[in-house]
């Protein structure tokens, strides 16, 4: 006998709302699920197509079937056998890791200083940093290029990385998060004998791990997928990052979509790893900082 049958049996024709499962599914909820499902499909489809295309032969790539008629790993063998991909992969790793480390270090240091220290001009410095968020990247490319050319940074790792070593967004984000660190923690550490750098590193930083993790994910993904600036800053294939390198699979005569999609599929692996690692810290950080008095 089902719960519903028990309910109606006991109370005649009156519906007894004893069990949650008895509630009818409201039409509004069906609409909401449908919209969410469509959104989810729209987001996942490009990834599915990417994976699907990477498993197809060239003659099949313009067919929109999701499951290849003749699945093959030949594209993976080709891309992985081509030594250039490893080089681009390493380059991307170097650029993404270095910029992420730099941003996490400097942005949180500046954010902490702007939040916890009182000094003349503090507001002006903060507004100046914020104002950099209003300038589109495209407008900065020419000054960056001039700078890189003047200092001889073109076609070097530093040339690819320098515009992203500190960000206004990261500084703003960290400053806002440091607001949630009680001043008494800092005072207590000061009395306990820590210097200002140690207070920042040992006391304040562990308390903002959710923000640090989120920032690290954003910065890593941003640099891993960056295309325009690395394309402009490099001309030697040995210094290409993955997105720039993959674009070289297309030339005037032909676009090797199956190889591009294979490279792109391989390139998602580090981003997944980074997300999985830092997502744990976001959750742990939320648990830690949820301490109430």
């Amino acid at each position: 006998m089902t719960a519903d049958a028990i309910g109606t049996g006991a109370a005649g024709s009156t519906r007894v709302g004893l069990f949650r499962g008895d509630k009818p599914i409201r039409p509004g909820r069906i609409v909401a699920w449908t919209i969410l499902m469509m959104g989810g499909i729209a987001m996942v489809m490009p990834l599915v197509f990417m994976l699907s295309t990477s498993l197809k032969f060239p003659h099949e790539i313009y067919d929109l079937n999701l499951i290849p008629n003749e699945p093959t790993l030949e594209n993976y063998t080709y891309v992985l056998a081509d030594g250039r991909f490893y080089r681009w992969f390493i380059n991307s790793l170097i650029v993404a890791i270095a910029t992420t480390a730099s941003v996490v270090f400097f942005d949180s240091l500046v954010g902490y200083t702007l939040c916890k220290f009182r000094f003349k001009g503090r507001a002006i410095v903060f507004v100046a940093i914020l104002s950099t968020l209003m300038i589109p990247t495209e407008m900065l490319i020419i000054p960056w290029y001039n700078m890189a050319r003047t200092f001889g940074w073109l076609d070097t790792y530093w040339g690819i990385m320098f515009p992203g070593m500190m960000t206004g967004f990261g500084t703003f984000l960290m400053r806002q998060f440091f607001e949630s660190v009680p001043d008494d923690f800092i005072h207590a550490a000061r009395i306990d004998g820590l210097n200002e750098f140690q207070i920042w590193w040992q006391v304040a930083m562990p308390l903002v791990t959710p923000a640090l993790s989120a920032l690290a994910i954003f910065v890593f993904l941003g640099n891993w997928t960056a295309f325009i600036w690395p394309l402009i800053a490099t001309s030697t294939a040995d210094l290409y990052t993955v997105p720039v390198g993959l674009s070289s699979f297309a030339d005037e005569a032909d676009v090797a979509w199956e190889l591009i999609m294979t490279g792109a599929s391989l390139a998602t692996i580090p981003t997944l790893i980074v997300f999985l690692i830092f997502q744990r810290y976001i959750i742990r950080g939320v648990v830690l900082t949820g301490l109430k008095g």
């Binding site: 008494d184 923690f185 207590a188 009395i191 562990p206 308390l207 830690l288």
Partner: peptide
């Protein structure tokens, strides 16, 4: 010093 909100590092 002992603080009002304890200032214990979580």
């Amino acid at each position: 010093m002992v603080f009002q909100n304890y200032a214990l590092y979580p």
